[in-house]
Structures are given as structure tokens and as C-alpha cells.
Amino acid sequence: MAFASIEFKGSSFTLSVLQLKTSLLVDIRADLTKKIAQAPDFFYLVPLVINIEKINDSIDYQAVKLLIEELNFTFVGFTGSVDKEQRQLIRELGFSFVNTARASTTNGTSKKTTAAVVVEKAEKIDSAPQRQLYTDKVHRGQIRSGQQIYAKNQNLVVIGSVSAGAEVIADGNIHVYGALRGRAIAGATGHIHAQIYCQNLEAELVSINGNYWLSESMEDHWGSPAHINLTDNELTSAKLI
């Protein structure tokens, strides 16, 4: 029977696999935290499958899930070549057990490759310029109607106001030490962590990573110092001070 509104399809995805070598949550947390610190952007909300085949003693599955979610990963499920009973237990606890061609073949070399790929990827990101380390483009003075300032691969700091009809754009964050009355577009080339700060929010439009608000959505902090960011792909505003 065909459904008008939904359709199930199979598809393959590349997922990151976290190979656990110990059941000691304290150690896992410490190492993960260090790893994330090297490239926070890369790991943020990354879907993660936990491979537990190297764990010989018992492990608190619920605690593992909570830990990785706390560290801002998206928990997918567990994997690894484990016996049927363990698999059953995982399912009974309400977690999905992800079967992969590699994991289920119990082929040691390919498992290594999976883990290596993750590490390699992370390493690559480490050497790339990190988004957090954007330098600042500083503009002193008012940005007038009709003017446009673009901070390419930079944050934009405006010491002055942005007039109605003016446009400020940055690949990073935007700070306005004055009134923001024109348009502000942060994270212009895609950056979910981009932020907009201003001392007086009266903008025509604010946008982060392609999500935008017109004036009418800014009522909560209209005319006051505000901070705008992106949470779960939704713009949110907060009182700045």
C-alpha cells in the first residue's frame, strides 16, 4: 500500500564511529574532551556510532549515551562484533544496534580503517584554519545607508552604528558597538556558530548561516542591547547585558 505523505527508503551514510577501548567513563570523557577542543566545530552535533567490541567487561550503556550527548554529539547507536546476548541487551535497553558490513564481518583490518578514518578526518580539520580563530575586521564610524561592508573570512566589529539601508556582512561574527538599524548577515558562507551582538537592536534583517529574521521577529529585544545566535537551526535572541 502506498502512502501519500511518507515513503521508506534505504540509504547508506558515512557515520563517525567512536571506538571505545575502556569502559572507564572518566577516561573516555577526558580524552573526548581533549579531542573536541582541537576542532569543536567539526565535532559539533556529529552523528556518532559507538563501537563497543573492545570492551570486555560490562559497560553502562545509558551513561555512555548521556556522556556523548552532553559533549554535543548526536547519539545514533552502538555497533561492534558482540555476541547475540549483548546485542539483545542493548536493544532491550532501548538503544539501536547498528549493523554495518564491516562490523558484522568481524574483520579486524577493516574495523581499524573505520577508526583510522575518523582520526584522519579530525586531524585534517585540525590543520585547517579554525572558524573560531577568525580575525577581526574593525570599522570605525557609522555605516551609512547604501553602504555595504563585507568581512571575508573574518569577524566584523563596527564601532559606530549601522544605519537603516546599510548592510554588514561577515563570514564570522558581527559586533556592533552602536545601533544596528540596517541588515546584518553573519556566517555568510555557512557557519552555524556565528553570532550577532549589538548595543541597540533595530535591524531591518538579521541572518545567521542563512536563517533570517525581519524586524517583526525581533520584538523581544527591540531597541535594547541584544545577542542573536542560532540554536537548533532557529534564530534566538537574548538580552546582551
Binding site: 564610524g141 557609522q142 555605516i143 551609512r144 545607508s145 547604501g146 553602504q147 544605519s163 537603516a164 539601508g165 546599510a166
Partner: peptide
């Protein structure tokens, strides 16, 4: 006021 703002931008550039 908006047009004056525009002209001020021109004066400066």
C-alpha cells in the same frame, strides 16, 4: 533622514 544618511555616506567616500 534616510536620504541624508545616504548622502553622508557619499560625502565620506
Amino acid at each position: 533622514v534616510r536620504d541624508s544618511d545616504r548622502i553622508l555616506g557619499m560625502l565620506a567616500s
